[in-house]
């Protein structure tokens, strides 16, 4: 009897299992994707490819059809050229969607990037690089804590990012922990759980909406690789608003990709007629030894 009931139940369960319909919709966006992080003092680079495409290393390696132009003061100042990055694995090369220029980004400057490719909609974006900010820095090696005292400029809306980078060849990002409620920590990692309400992750973002025009102190805890005393670089970046919004939404996309229940959303970019971002920042660097 017990078996009979069990198998009856199994039958009902099979009848009730999910059924799936599949259909395909052609993606005809004809749009370009650009991702370009402008850092004051660095040459301007970009990543650009057609939307709706997946990498095919055989094809993409030889793809040189996209033209990227850099503008300043309504004049073309540079043409970005495709660059071949070093293969990161034996017999595997990165595709030719990386572009470089010889122009060095300047603080306070405004640039425009345009992208052209046959049969696709031209894309463009405009971005200004904010001025760097110099904080007061206090290092507390005994508690693995860095205190940053930031005086905010009340005349404009400001955004900041903080990151710790291990200055080895790989430039590995060091996980950080913040307690300040106005700090948004992105790319959290569950193996660095704080002992109270702090949040941990790889990149901290701050908007000045909570301390506009005031001085505020932020404490950040870092977690070096156990036992190593390689130098760590603290990078405090002054971000444009576009940069801040893009980073936030990109982190959301990362969560969406790992959690089916997450609220879905789009990347908040600033490319006209395209996807991605052309965003600027100015860095302040501070190096220290953790031990």
């Amino acid at each position: 009897m017990k078996k009979c009931i069990f198998y009856t139940w199994l039958c009902l369960l099979f009848i009730s299992c999910q059924k799936e319909n599949t259909y395909t919709v052609q993606a005809n966006s004809k749009k370009l994707v650009i991702e370009s992080y402008l850092t004051a003092g660095d040459t301007i680079k970009a990543f650009c490819l057609p939307a709706g495409r997946h990498f095919d290393y055989n094809i993409d390696f030889n793809d040189t059809l996209t033209q990227l132009l850099l503008w300043a003061d309504n004049q073309i100042i540079d043409t970005l050229f495709p660059t071949l990055r070093l293969p990161n694995m034996v017999n595997q090369s990165q595709p030719l969607y990386n572009f470089s220029s010889q122009t060095v980004a300047k603080q306070g400057a405004t640039y425009r990037l345009t992208a052209l490719r046959d049969e696709l909609v031209p894309a463009a974006s405009l971005e200004s690089i904010p001025e760097a900010i110099v904080p007061q820095v206090n290092h507390h090696p005994e508690s693995k804590k860095i205190s940053l005292r930031i005086t905010d400029d009340a005349s404009q809306e400001n955004f900041y990012a903080i990151q710790f980078i291990n200055q080895t060849i790989d430039e590995e990002i060091v996980e950080l922990l913040a307690y300040h409620p106005s700090v948004e920590v992105l790319y959290g990692n569950s193996d660095f759980i704080p002992d109270d309400e702090g949040t941990s992750g790889k990149l901290a973002l701050i908007s000045d909406r909570f301390f506009n025009g005031e001085t505020q102190t932020f404490d950040f805890y870092y977690r070096p690789v156990s036992g190593s005393n390689t130098p760590i670089k603290l990078v405090l970046s002054a971000l444009s608003k576009n940069y801040y919004q893009y980073e936030l939404s990109k982190a959301s996309q990362y969560s969406i990709s790992i959690d089916l229940l997450s609220e879905i959303g789009n990347l908040k970019g600033n490319i006209e007629n395209g996807y991605g971002a052309f965003i600027g920042k100015s860095d302040y660097n501070y190096s220290f030894f953790p031990l």
Binding site: I15, N21, Y23
Partner: peptide
């Protein structure tokens, strides 16, 4: 390819 494939899932068919 360049196309998007949609999967439409139904969970409760006829259940006596």
């Amino acid at each position: 390819g360049s196309d998007l494939t949609f999967y439409e899932t139904s969970v409760l068919p006829i259940i006596p």
